[in-house]
């Protein structure tokens, strides 16, 4: 994770017209953004496209970045919204099968444990996507973007306690959802 001070320096340089500062910000953040989008979409190609879309939106909305949270957290919110906009389009196709797992190199069947784990991950992903917006972003940023709770609190403009309450509530909903899906 980039140090906040370094991020501030890069943003200051970016404001002065330094293009290299923008590229440095991309280098610091694009892997996490891609990882988050992969978790959300479970589709590496779609995640790559949405990562590019996320940065396009970020450059356009850079003037509204108020600096409350880190630049990467701000990008997570943009990435989540970009993904939701994509899946809400009528033509959008969200992979429902396990594209990430694929098959073993020898073409044989997966081991049972791996299959079960992959299936569980997919159910979990779908359950996360089914959460309310504020819970979905909180869970995605916290676990798939590896963002600390205080940072999420600053990005959302709420207290850390409120973030933890969101997570607790999200866990409860996820548990119920996964249980219903399994049954």
């Amino acid at each position: 994770m980039a140090e906040p001070a370094g991020e501030r320096e890069l943003l200051a340089s970016l404001a002065g017209g330094d293009r290299e500062a923008a590229e440095a910000l991309v280098d610091r953040t694009y892997r996490k953004v891609f990882a988050l989008l992969c978790k959300l979409s479970h589709d590496p190609d779609l995640a790559a496209d949405l990562t590019q879309e996320t940065y396009r939106r970020a450059w356009a909305a850079l003037g509204s970045f108020d600096g409350r949270a880190q630049f990467s957290t701000w990008l997570y919110r943009i990435a989540t919204n970009a993904f939701l906009n994509h899946v809400r389009r009528p033509h959008a196709v969200v992979p429902l099968d396990d594209e990430m797992g694929g098959t073993l190199p020898d073409g044989g069947p997966r081991q049972d444990d791996e299959a079960i784990a992959a299936q569980t991950q997919e159910r979990l992903r779908r359950a996360v996507l089914g959460l309310p917006d504020e819970l979905r972003f909180t869970v995605a940023a916290r676990f798939w973007g590896e963002t600390p709770v205080p940072e999420i609190a600053r990005a959302e403009g709420i207290s850390e306690v409120a973030v933890r309450k969101r997570l607790k509530r999200a866990f409860r909903l996820l548990a119920v959802t996964l249980e219903e899906v399994a049954s």
Binding site: R19, W59, G63, F65
Partner: peptide
């Protein structure tokens, strides 16, 4: 999670606009 495809960073950097406006609060 898999690594991002090669060239993704380059594509993103290529789309950086020439003029960027940074919010005052970020500085």
């Amino acid at each position: 999670m898999p690594e991002p495809p090669p060239g993704l960073a380059r594509q993103i950097k290529a789309e950086i606009p020439g003029q960027l406006e940074v919010g005052g609060g970020a500085l």
